[in-house]
Design a protein around this nucleic acid. Structure first.
Lengths: 385, 385
DNA sequence: TAACTTTGTTCATCCAATAGACAAACAAAT
DNA sequence: ATTTGTTTGTCTATTGGATGAACAAAGTTA
């Protein structure tokens, strides 16, 4: 790769757009200070961005003793992205503006895990979403789909254990039917990206997102990028072994982290303990809230296992931030302290500097937003030619 | 950060230099094809690089039917880097040319682990190395020091367990005494960088280097860069737990990978088994070569533990290449098959695509070379002003 | 109303890449 | 030896960015 003036210009324009995107509302003066370009250059590039309809002028700042500065705002309705979260018994889709705000959404339950049935519902859902996209200069900028399983870099679902799907080229399938950009990701990576792009984590250069639902996956952000590995299978740390010859895992091996720290493991243990069938996470939380000591203890243990695995990740990554997301956050108040205590007693003092463990505040919509956020980011990164 | 023409020019010049560095000998035509710049531009920048003494013209290529092209060679003697490997009972230092070849080296045993004694020896070693640097345009481009412990980004040794050093600002100490650039790294990161820069791994974008000696550390290369984490403590995967409540580790906790897969663990087990004191890795290898079944079995078990930890790393990183280095490679023939078998039976089929596990071929000099390679790379990256 | 401050625009200048013309070096055929 | 064609390398005018400086516009304060 080589540089030329066009690339340089694009880079500067991109810097300005990124800055406005992250700050939402800024003056030309702030851009000059932040990016380091000169007045004339900023003025030219800002004019172009306004012509591109990616930003708009919006009101004036207070005066600091002279002419008031014209404020600039990111144009969040320049286009809209579709995001779909494929769950094990549900489908959730939403239309997001470029700021990640929901404009329209739809949740439906899918009574089977058959691929055919899912595909039919997905197509219907996409049609429904498309009908509800407001008119805008760029219209639909793309579709992001999050899958509970391993996806390779070509958008092929290699394996989705709980859906029992294998080797299905979902991106190809959708590309044949729609002509906007389509990006397929796994749910942990989607969650990680949503946190990175939309939760003020743009300054965090390395971040781990733990998606703890039925299973456990990790989304890894390193140096401001999602880290996918060679093929796209990074973050399968749920199947890292934390106890040799330990509990049987759904993957067939023994002692995986996921076999101890997941909704599946929790419910498995609770079923055994309470001798009841068909327990749900929500029921267990209710029991804990009612003061059921054994259930509270169970949550504590799960917290211990989660914490132990996080410790392993800290040893390996020395991350800046760890965010816990997905269904487990409903049990936050019963597991948080136990997680933090475990991390504290299993790391060395210097490993505890400059890092934080927190729970996601994006809740249910996080995965669909994350799926869409890849598309939004792609759009923001390359809107010029 | 913003772009301007000077930065653009520097970028292009850098691309050319990097290409010549990696290929060692190229024609202008190859540069034009590889980098994508035009004839005149390449000619100008190459002229500058020759004036900078970073490359030299060296012979002519065969003709392909017209004028023969002038070949360009990286000037490996433009300057020299010093590399020091601080071991637990030895000090090894070397003078490297910019291609990473040893020009002079020195190994000395240090009979104590006292910091004061080490520092004295280190200062003497540096003086000795300096006296043996050949005259050259850039002279000494810097000093790299590799430490068997955790080092933060400011070059402070936070903890070196086997030396019992804590919180010592070695970079500050050396900076007060020498005025060339100084870079402190831990031994796993040094090994990883040596493999990346000097073993034709420049195309590998993510690579894990396992330093298995007394302890176990991991050097991580992601997206062509060493990954240090927030503070510099990444790669302490030796203290990731693979067996809850398992063997006591030197760190005070139980079940760390290092407690199963390291020279320390191996010798500990062998001592127990053979009821002999003062065993060494070399002795065990001799026993295995003589056909001692129990010792051979012991190596196999160690291979199993190493493989299990590597599996965990594969789950998390989906890496392109894993290189095993440091003292354990002496036992390669007794552990390799067991490592590969373990990985094979513990990963899923798709995780076995596009990756390779191999043993380092750099041997003893790897760590010092790695330490120096940070300096060499820094020099190659920023020789202009 | 005048003086001053800050913001935003216009225009000539600078600089690196580049296209295209040209020169140099070589092989192969005549 | 000469001619022709090909490849390498250089020279020069042009292009398209950033930028400094002058200037215009829009404020505040006395």
């Amino acid at each position: 790769m080589s540089w030329n003036q066009q690339i340089g210009k694009k880079f500067n324009k991109q810097q300005i757009l990124n800055y406005i995107f992250s700050k939402r509302i800024v003056s030309r003066g702030e851009i000059i200070e932040e990016i380091g370009l000169k007045k004339a250059t900023v003025a030219n590039l800002v004019t172009e961005l306004i012509e591109d309809q990616l930003i708009v002028e919006d009101g004036k700042d207070f005066s600091t003793g002279g002419r008031r500065s014209q404020l600039l705002r990111f144009n969040e309705t320049a286009g809209f992205a579709l995001g779909i979260d494929i769950g094990v018994n549900y489908l959730y889709g939403a239309v997001f503006n470029l700021k990640g705000e929901i404009v329209f959404d739809n949740l439906q339950l899918v009574p089977t895990i058959q691929l055919d049935a899912y595909l039919k519902s997905i197509l219907n859902l996409i049609e429904l979403l498309m009908e509800n996209v407001p008119p805008s200069p760029f219209s639909i900028v793309g579709l992001g789909v999050a899958v509970p399983g391993s996806v390779n870099k070509d958008g092929v679902i290699i394996i989705a254990p709980n859906l029992r799907w294998e080797d299905f080229d979902i991106r190809g399938y959708l590309r044949n039917r729609f002509d906007f950009p389509i990006y397929i990701s796994n749910e942990a990576n989607a969650g990680a990206y949503a946190e990175y792009i939309f939760e003020n984590n743009k300054e965090t250069s390395n971040l781990l997102y733990l998606s703890i639902g039925i299973g456990l996956g990790v989304g890894i952000i390193i140096d401001h990028n999602i880290y996918l590995g060679v093929n796209g299978y990074s973050g399968e740390s749920g199947h890292a072994i934390i106890h040799m010859n330990g509990r049987k895992c759904t993957c067939g091996r023994n002692g995986c982290w996921e076999a101890y720290a997941s909704e599946y493991a929790l419910i498995h243990d609770a079923t055994y303990m309470l001798k009841e069938r068909e327990l749900s996470l929500e029921q267990l939380i209710t029991l804990a809230e009612e003061g059921h000591e054994d259930v509270i203890q169970l949550f504590k243990e799960t917290g211990y296992y989660i914490g132990l695995g996080i410790t392993n990740l800290i040893q390996t990554f020395n991350p800046e931030k760890i965010i816990i997301g997905n269904r487990i956050i409903k049990a936050q108040k019963f597991i948080e302290q136990s997680i933090l205590d475990t991390i504290n007693s299993n790391t060395m003092h210097f490993q505890r500097d400059n890092y934080s463990v927190q729970f996601s505040t994006l809740k249910d919509r996080a995965i669909a937003l994350g799926a869409a956020s890849f598309i939004i980011d792609q759009f923001i990164q390359l809107p010029f030619d």
